[in-house]
Computed example of a mutant assay.
Amino acid sequence: MQDDDLPDDDPSPFGDPLHPDDRLWRHPSEMRSVPPVGARSIPDTVDFAPAPPRRRLAWSALVASSLVGASAALLAVLATGMGERVVERIVETPPSAAPSSLVPVATTVPPNGPAEAVEAVLPGVAHLTITTEGGTVDASAVVVRADGYLVTDALPLEGASEVLVTLADGRNLPGEVVGSDPVSALAVLRVDATDLAVVDHGTPADLEVGQWAMAIGTHEDGGPSVSSGTISALQQRAENGAGTVLYGLIRFDAPVPGEVAGGPLVVDSGAVVGVAVKADEEASFGWATPIDEVRQVADDIIELGHARHAWLGVEGRRTTEGALVSAVVPHSPADTAGLRAGDVLLHADGEPLPSMGTLAALIRAAEPGDPISLTFLRDGAEHTATATLGERS
Protein backbone atom coordinates (compact mmCIF):
# COMPACT_ATOMS: atom_id res chain seq x y z
CA MET A 1 0.00 0.00 0.00
CA GLN A 2 1.48 3.25 -1.06
CA ASP A 3 1.82 6.12 1.27
CA ASP A 4 -0.01 9.25 0.15
CA ASP A 5 3.12 11.40 0.43
CA LEU A 6 5.15 9.29 -2.04
CA PRO A 7 5.53 10.28 -5.68
CA ASP A 8 2.65 9.22 -7.86
CA ASP A 9 3.27 8.67 -11.54
CA ASP A 10 -0.41 8.36 -12.37
CA PRO A 11 -1.83 11.30 -14.26
CA SER A 12 -3.28 13.83 -11.84
CA PRO A 13 -7.04 14.14 -12.05
CA PHE A 14 -6.60 17.90 -11.58
CA GLY A 15 -4.50 18.47 -14.71
CA ASP A 16 -1.36 20.61 -14.93
CA PRO A 17 -0.96 23.46 -12.44
CA LEU A 18 -1.63 27.00 -13.61
CA HIS A 19 1.11 29.44 -14.55
CA PRO A 20 2.47 31.14 -11.38
CA ASP A 21 1.16 34.51 -12.56
CA ASP A 22 -2.31 33.00 -12.87
CA ARG A 23 -2.32 31.61 -9.34
CA LEU A 24 -2.85 33.16 -5.93
CA TRP A 25 0.11 31.21 -4.56
CA ARG A 26 3.71 30.37 -5.48
CA HIS A 27 5.99 27.52 -4.53
CA PRO A 28 9.17 28.68 -2.72
CA SER A 29 11.25 27.48 -5.63
CA GLU A 30 9.35 29.87 -7.89
CA MET A 31 9.95 32.95 -5.79
CA ARG A 32 13.16 33.88 -7.60
CA SER A 33 11.10 34.49 -10.69
CA VAL A 34 9.17 37.24 -8.89
CA PRO A 35 10.29 40.68 -10.12
CA PRO A 36 12.12 42.81 -7.56
CA VAL A 37 10.41 45.78 -5.97
CA GLY A 38 10.10 48.58 -8.48
CA ALA A 39 10.26 46.26 -11.48
CA ARG A 40 7.47 45.94 -14.01
CA SER A 41 4.49 44.04 -12.68
CA ILE A 42 4.46 41.82 -15.74
CA PRO A 43 8.08 40.91 -16.77
CA ASP A 44 8.99 40.43 -20.40
CA THR A 45 10.54 37.02 -19.63
CA VAL A 46 10.27 34.77 -16.61
CA ASP A 47 12.85 32.06 -15.84
CA PHE A 48 10.90 29.23 -14.24
CA ALA A 49 12.69 26.58 -12.24
CA PRO A 50 11.59 23.02 -12.77
CA ALA A 51 8.52 22.32 -10.79
CA PRO A 52 8.92 19.82 -7.98
CA PRO A 53 7.37 16.39 -8.35
CA ARG A 54 3.64 16.64 -7.87
CA ARG A 55 2.25 14.87 -4.88
CA ARG A 56 -1.42 13.96 -4.51
CA LEU A 57 -1.42 15.13 -0.93
CA ALA A 58 -0.05 18.51 -1.88
CA TRP A 59 -2.77 19.09 -4.48
CA SER A 60 -5.45 17.65 -2.24
CA ALA A 61 -4.34 19.90 0.58
CA LEU A 62 -4.25 22.84 -1.81
CA VAL A 63 -7.75 22.20 -3.07
CA ALA A 64 -9.00 21.61 0.46
CA SER A 65 -7.36 24.76 1.74
CA SER A 66 -8.71 26.70 -1.23
CA LEU A 67 -12.20 25.42 -0.57
CA VAL A 68 -11.88 26.21 3.11
CA GLY A 69 -10.58 29.67 2.30
CA ALA A 70 -13.34 30.28 -0.21
CA SER A 71 -15.92 29.03 2.25
CA ALA A 72 -14.51 31.28 4.95
CA ALA A 73 -14.54 34.23 2.58
CA LEU A 74 -18.12 33.45 1.57
CA LEU A 75 -19.18 33.18 5.21
CA ALA A 76 -17.45 36.46 5.96
CA VAL A 77 -19.26 38.17 3.10
CA LEU A 78 -22.59 36.75 4.16
CA ALA A 79 -21.95 37.71 7.77
CA THR A 80 -21.24 41.30 6.82
CA GLY A 81 -24.13 41.46 4.39
CA MET A 82 -21.87 42.22 1.42
CA GLY A 83 -22.93 39.08 -0.33
CA GLU A 84 -26.66 39.70 -0.09
CA ARG A 85 -28.54 40.07 -3.30
CA VAL A 86 -30.39 43.36 -3.26
CA VAL A 87 -33.62 43.32 -5.20
CA GLU A 88 -35.29 46.66 -5.84
CA ARG A 89 -39.01 46.41 -6.36
CA ILE A 90 -41.61 49.00 -7.17
CA VAL A 91 -44.84 47.87 -5.60
CA GLU A 92 -47.94 49.61 -6.84
CA THR A 93 -50.85 49.57 -4.46
CA PRO A 94 -54.22 51.18 -4.97
CA PRO A 95 -54.71 54.35 -2.90
CA SER A 96 -56.34 53.63 0.41
CA ALA A 97 -59.88 54.79 0.89
CA ALA A 98 -60.15 58.27 2.35
CA PRO A 99 -61.28 58.50 5.96
CA SER A 100 -65.02 58.53 6.34
CA SER A 101 -64.82 62.09 7.61
CA LEU A 102 -63.56 63.22 4.22
CA VAL A 103 -66.07 61.34 2.08
CA PRO A 104 -69.30 63.19 1.23
CA VAL A 105 -72.21 61.34 2.80
CA ALA A 106 -74.93 63.87 2.19
CA THR A 107 -78.35 62.94 0.92
CA THR A 108 -78.58 66.28 -0.85
CA VAL A 109 -75.79 68.18 -2.57
CA PRO A 110 -75.47 71.73 -3.87
CA PRO A 111 -76.91 72.31 -7.35
CA ASN A 112 -73.48 72.78 -8.88
CA GLY A 113 -71.81 70.01 -6.86
CA PRO A 114 -69.45 69.99 -3.86
CA ALA A 115 -66.42 70.82 -6.01
CA GLU A 116 -67.93 74.14 -7.03
CA ALA A 117 -68.76 74.98 -3.41
CA VAL A 118 -65.18 74.25 -2.36
CA GLU A 119 -63.81 76.31 -5.24
CA ALA A 120 -66.01 79.26 -4.33
CA VAL A 121 -65.09 79.31 -0.64
CA LEU A 122 -61.46 78.15 -0.64
CA PRO A 123 -59.92 81.59 -1.46
CA GLY A 124 -61.23 82.83 1.90
CA VAL A 125 -59.81 79.91 3.91
CA ALA A 126 -56.29 79.81 5.36
CA HIS A 127 -54.18 77.05 6.90
CA LEU A 128 -52.68 77.58 10.35
CA THR A 129 -49.46 75.97 11.54
CA ILE A 130 -49.44 76.59 15.28
CA THR A 131 -46.26 76.08 17.29
CA THR A 132 -46.72 75.13 20.94
CA GLU A 133 -44.49 73.75 23.64
CA GLY A 134 -45.69 70.26 22.76
CA GLY A 135 -45.09 70.56 19.01
CA THR A 136 -47.07 71.86 16.05
CA VAL A 137 -50.83 71.86 15.58
CA ASP A 138 -52.77 72.28 12.32
CA ALA A 139 -56.01 74.23 12.01
CA SER A 140 -57.83 76.50 9.59
CA ALA A 141 -59.21 80.03 9.66
CA VAL A 142 -61.83 82.07 7.81
CA VAL A 143 -61.14 85.52 6.40
CA VAL A 144 -63.61 88.01 7.89
CA ARG A 145 -62.06 91.26 6.66
CA ALA A 146 -59.98 92.01 3.60
CA ASP A 147 -57.54 94.10 5.63
CA GLY A 148 -55.92 91.06 7.22
CA TYR A 149 -58.34 89.69 9.83
CA LEU A 150 -59.30 86.03 10.19
CA VAL A 151 -61.34 84.12 12.76
CA THR A 152 -60.70 80.58 13.97
CA ASP A 153 -61.34 78.08 16.75
CA ALA A 154 -59.53 79.31 19.87
CA LEU A 155 -58.81 75.85 21.29
CA PRO A 156 -55.85 74.96 18.98
CA LEU A 157 -54.25 78.33 19.82
CA GLU A 158 -53.89 77.58 23.53
CA GLY A 159 -50.24 77.87 24.49
CA ALA A 160 -49.21 78.99 21.00
CA SER A 161 -45.81 80.65 20.69
CA GLU A 162 -46.01 81.17 16.94
CA VAL A 163 -48.70 81.04 14.26
CA LEU A 164 -47.91 80.71 10.57
CA VAL A 165 -50.81 81.59 8.25
CA THR A 166 -50.77 80.03 4.78
CA LEU A 167 -53.20 81.86 2.51
CA ALA A 168 -54.99 80.27 -0.42
CA ASP A 169 -52.67 82.04 -2.86
CA GLY A 170 -49.64 80.37 -1.27
CA ARG A 171 -48.35 83.27 0.82
CA ASN A 172 -46.94 82.35 4.23
CA LEU A 173 -47.39 85.16 6.75
CA PRO A 174 -46.86 85.34 10.50
CA GLY A 175 -50.16 85.56 12.35
CA GLU A 176 -50.80 87.79 15.35
CA VAL A 177 -53.44 86.74 17.87
CA VAL A 178 -55.55 89.88 18.26
CA GLY A 179 -57.73 88.36 20.96
CA SER A 180 -59.79 85.35 21.96
CA ASP A 181 -63.17 84.90 23.60
CA PRO A 182 -63.51 82.26 26.33
CA VAL A 183 -67.31 82.26 26.06
CA SER A 184 -67.59 81.37 22.37
CA ALA A 185 -64.13 79.75 22.08
CA LEU A 186 -63.35 81.89 19.03
CA ALA A 187 -60.17 83.83 18.30
CA VAL A 188 -59.18 86.54 15.84
CA LEU A 189 -55.87 86.59 13.97
CA ARG A 190 -54.27 89.34 11.93
CA VAL A 191 -51.75 89.15 9.08
CA ASP A 192 -49.95 91.95 7.29
CA ALA A 193 -52.08 92.01 4.13
CA THR A 194 -54.85 94.19 2.73
CA ASP A 195 -56.11 92.12 -0.18
CA LEU A 196 -57.64 89.05 1.42
CA ALA A 197 -60.67 87.32 -0.11
CA VAL A 198 -63.75 87.46 2.12
CA VAL A 199 -66.22 84.58 1.93
CA ASP A 200 -69.95 85.12 1.45
CA HIS A 201 -71.94 84.76 4.66
CA GLY A 202 -75.31 83.06 4.83
CA THR A 203 -78.15 83.24 7.34
CA PRO A 204 -78.12 80.51 10.01
CA ALA A 205 -81.78 81.24 10.77
CA ASP A 206 -82.68 79.75 7.39
CA LEU A 207 -80.99 76.40 8.09
CA GLU A 208 -83.04 73.22 8.15
CA VAL A 209 -82.35 69.81 9.64
CA GLY A 210 -81.41 67.41 6.84
CA GLN A 211 -79.81 70.13 4.75
CA TRP A 212 -76.46 69.32 3.12
CA ALA A 213 -73.43 70.99 4.74
CA MET A 214 -69.67 70.81 4.39
CA ALA A 215 -66.85 71.97 6.68
CA ILE A 216 -63.80 73.06 4.71
CA GLY A 217 -60.21 73.32 5.90
CA THR A 218 -56.88 73.40 4.13
CA HIS A 219 -53.71 71.35 4.28
CA GLU A 220 -50.30 72.96 4.61
CA ASP A 221 -49.84 72.75 0.84
CA GLY A 222 -53.06 74.69 0.28
CA GLY A 223 -55.17 71.72 -0.78
CA PRO A 224 -58.68 71.42 0.67
CA SER A 225 -59.67 69.08 3.48
CA VAL A 226 -63.40 68.48 3.46
CA SER A 227 -65.78 66.97 6.01
CA SER A 228 -69.34 66.80 4.72
CA GLY A 229 -72.70 65.46 5.77
CA THR A 230 -76.14 66.71 6.68
CA ILE A 231 -77.25 69.11 9.37
CA SER A 232 -78.72 66.93 12.10
CA ALA A 233 -79.65 69.48 14.78
CA LEU A 234 -79.71 73.20 15.56
CA GLN A 235 -79.32 75.21 18.76
CA GLN A 236 -77.17 72.52 20.36
CA ARG A 237 -74.75 72.65 23.26
CA ALA A 238 -71.41 70.87 23.60
CA GLU A 239 -68.28 71.05 25.72
CA ASN A 240 -64.93 71.59 24.02
CA GLY A 241 -61.56 70.24 25.13
CA ALA A 242 -60.97 73.21 27.43
CA GLY A 243 -64.16 72.54 29.37
CA THR A 244 -66.06 75.48 27.86
CA VAL A 245 -69.75 74.80 27.28
CA LEU A 246 -70.73 76.18 23.88
CA TYR A 247 -74.35 77.04 23.11
CA GLY A 248 -76.38 77.50 19.96
CA LEU A 249 -74.19 75.20 17.88
CA ILE A 250 -75.00 73.68 14.50
CA ARG A 251 -74.49 69.91 14.51
CA PHE A 252 -73.73 68.06 11.27
CA ASP A 253 -73.14 64.38 10.59
CA ALA A 254 -69.38 64.37 10.02
CA PRO A 255 -66.49 64.73 12.49
CA VAL A 256 -64.12 67.70 12.37
CA PRO A 257 -60.47 66.72 11.72
CA GLY A 258 -57.80 68.90 13.28
CA GLU A 259 -56.95 70.78 10.10
CA VAL A 260 -60.65 71.58 9.51
CA ALA A 261 -61.20 73.14 12.97
CA GLY A 262 -61.67 76.87 12.47
CA GLY A 263 -62.73 76.45 8.85
CA PRO A 264 -66.09 77.49 7.37
CA LEU A 265 -69.28 75.44 7.36
CA VAL A 266 -70.84 75.79 3.90
CA VAL A 267 -74.37 74.89 2.80
CA ASP A 268 -75.81 74.00 -0.60
CA SER A 269 -76.07 77.63 -1.68
CA GLY A 270 -72.31 78.01 -1.27
CA ALA A 271 -72.71 80.47 1.62
CA VAL A 272 -70.82 80.18 4.89
CA VAL A 273 -73.20 79.65 7.83
CA GLY A 274 -70.74 78.85 10.61
CA VAL A 275 -67.20 78.13 11.75
CA ALA A 276 -66.28 74.54 12.63
CA VAL A 277 -65.07 74.03 16.20
CA LYS A 278 -63.46 71.10 17.99
CA ALA A 279 -65.90 69.82 20.59
CA ASP A 280 -66.56 66.34 21.93
CA GLU A 281 -63.52 64.49 20.54
CA GLU A 282 -65.28 61.12 20.71
CA ALA A 283 -68.29 62.19 18.65
CA SER A 284 -68.83 60.98 15.11
CA PHE A 285 -70.36 64.32 14.17
CA GLY A 286 -69.13 67.90 14.02
CA TRP A 287 -70.07 71.26 15.48
CA ALA A 288 -70.07 74.79 14.14
CA THR A 289 -70.69 78.19 15.69
CA PRO A 290 -73.31 80.13 13.69
CA ILE A 291 -71.78 82.83 11.50
CA ASP A 292 -73.94 85.56 13.10
CA GLU A 293 -72.24 84.99 16.44
CA VAL A 294 -68.87 84.64 14.73
CA ARG A 295 -69.24 88.04 13.06
CA GLN A 296 -70.34 89.66 16.30
CA VAL A 297 -67.46 88.22 18.32
CA ALA A 298 -64.91 89.06 15.61
CA ASP A 299 -66.13 92.66 15.28
CA ASP A 300 -65.98 93.17 19.05
CA ILE A 301 -62.47 91.76 19.35
CA ILE A 302 -61.21 93.84 16.42
CA GLU A 303 -62.82 97.08 17.59
CA LEU A 304 -62.76 96.70 21.38
CA GLY A 305 -60.13 94.07 22.08
CA HIS A 306 -62.69 91.75 23.71
CA ALA A 307 -66.08 90.24 22.92
CA ARG A 308 -69.24 91.66 24.45
CA HIS A 309 -71.90 89.16 25.52
CA ALA A 310 -75.51 89.83 26.42
CA TRP A 311 -76.77 88.75 29.83
CA LEU A 312 -80.23 88.12 31.28
CA GLY A 313 -79.45 86.84 34.77
CA VAL A 314 -81.45 83.64 35.29
CA GLU A 315 -80.64 80.05 36.15
CA GLY A 316 -82.88 77.10 35.42
CA ARG A 317 -83.48 73.70 33.91
CA ARG A 318 -85.59 71.91 31.35
CA THR A 319 -89.12 70.72 32.16
CA THR A 320 -91.91 69.22 30.11
CA GLU A 321 -93.57 72.64 29.94
CA GLY A 322 -90.54 74.80 29.16
CA ALA A 323 -87.48 76.33 30.83
CA LEU A 324 -88.02 76.46 34.59
CA VAL A 325 -86.41 79.45 36.34
CA SER A 326 -84.72 78.21 39.52
CA ALA A 327 -82.97 81.48 40.46
CA VAL A 328 -82.90 85.14 39.43
CA VAL A 329 -79.75 87.21 39.96
CA PRO A 330 -80.58 90.33 42.03
CA HIS A 331 -80.52 93.60 40.06
CA SER A 332 -80.13 91.69 36.79
CA PRO A 333 -82.16 92.44 33.64
CA ALA A 334 -84.39 89.46 34.52
CA ASP A 335 -84.97 90.85 38.02
CA THR A 336 -85.76 94.29 36.64
CA ALA A 337 -88.26 92.74 34.20
CA GLY A 338 -90.09 91.05 37.10
CA LEU A 339 -89.12 87.39 36.61
CA ARG A 340 -89.18 85.15 39.70
CA ALA A 341 -87.92 81.73 40.67
CA GLY A 342 -90.58 79.17 39.74
CA ASP A 343 -91.61 80.89 36.51
CA VAL A 344 -91.64 78.64 33.45
CA LEU A 345 -90.35 80.42 30.35
CA LEU A 346 -92.34 79.43 27.27
CA HIS A 347 -91.18 81.79 24.49
CA ALA A 348 -88.48 84.38 23.82
CA ASP A 349 -89.24 86.81 21.00
CA GLY A 350 -91.82 84.30 19.79
CA GLU A 351 -89.36 81.36 19.72
CA PRO A 352 -90.30 78.27 21.79
CA LEU A 353 -88.05 77.60 24.79
CA PRO A 354 -87.87 73.85 25.42
CA SER A 355 -84.78 74.32 27.60
CA MET A 356 -82.47 76.86 29.21
CA GLY A 357 -79.91 75.96 26.56
CA THR A 358 -82.21 77.33 23.88
CA LEU A 359 -82.63 80.56 25.83
CA ALA A 360 -78.86 80.82 26.32
CA ALA A 361 -78.30 80.42 22.58
CA LEU A 362 -80.80 83.18 21.78
CA ILE A 363 -79.18 85.52 24.28
CA ARG A 364 -75.72 84.64 22.95
CA ALA A 365 -76.80 85.75 19.49
CA ALA A 366 -78.09 89.08 20.81
CA GLU A 367 -76.13 92.16 21.86
CA PRO A 368 -76.10 94.03 25.15
CA GLY A 369 -78.89 96.59 25.14
CA ASP A 370 -81.18 94.52 22.93
CA PRO A 371 -84.74 94.05 24.23
CA ILE A 372 -86.10 90.53 24.59
CA SER A 373 -89.78 89.65 24.98
CA LEU A 374 -90.43 86.74 27.34
CA THR A 375 -93.63 84.74 27.71
CA PHE A 376 -93.77 82.72 30.91
CA LEU A 377 -96.13 80.65 33.00
CA ARG A 378 -96.79 81.61 36.64
CA ASP A 379 -99.42 80.04 38.85
CA GLY A 380 -101.08 78.49 35.81
CA ALA A 381 -101.42 81.78 33.92
CA GLU A 382 -99.35 83.14 31.04
CA HIS A 383 -97.58 86.47 31.41
CA THR A 384 -95.37 88.58 29.17
CA ALA A 385 -92.43 90.75 30.16
CA THR A 386 -89.74 92.62 28.24
CA ALA A 387 -86.16 92.67 29.51
CA THR A 388 -83.28 94.80 28.27
CA LEU A 389 -80.22 92.58 28.05
CA GLY A 390 -77.16 93.67 29.99
CA GLU A 391 -73.48 92.98 29.32
CA ARG A 392 -71.75 90.07 30.96
CA SER A 393 -68.86 91.33 33.04
Rank of each mutant, 00 (worst) to 15 (best):
T45A: 12
V151D: 13
H219C: 13
Q236V: 02
G210D: 04
G38A: 03
A307W: 05
G322Y: 01
A160G: 07
G113D: 00
T131H: 14
S227T: 06
D153Q: 10
G286C: 01
L196H: 07
L324Q: 08
T244F: 03
V260G: 02
D10N: 12
T93F: 11
V273A: 05
D9W: 15
G202N: 05
G248F: 01
G338Q: 02
G313Q: 01
S269K: 08
A120M: 02
D8Y: 07
D192F: 09
E239R: 15
G369V: 10
D343A: 07
R40N: 09
T319E: 02
V294L: 01
G179N: 08
E351N: 14
L6P: 10
D138C: 11
E116Q: 08
G357M: 09
A197D: 10
D4V: 15
P156I: 00
A213G: 06
A387W: 07
V199F: 06
Q235I: 03
D147A: 03
A341I: 01
P224F: 11
G342K: 04
L18T: 11
A298R: 00
I250V: 02
G274H: 03
T388K: 12
R318G: 05
H219S: 15
L150I: 04
P352Y: 07
G222P: 02
L346T: 09
R56M: 12
Y149N: 04
L155D: 14
A254E: 03
H219R: 15
L78H: 10
A168W: 06
E176T: 14
T336M: 10
A366R: 00
R145N: 04
L164G: 13
D5N: 15
R55A: 09
D5T: 14
A98V: 13
H306K: 14
R378I: 00
H347T: 15
E351P: 12
D153M: 09
V275M: 05
V294N: 02
R308Q: 08
A168N: 14
A213M: 07
P354R: 05
A141L: 04
L345K: 04
D138F: 11
G357E: 06
A307I: 11
V325G: 07
F285T: 13
G338I: 10
E158S: 12
F376S: 01
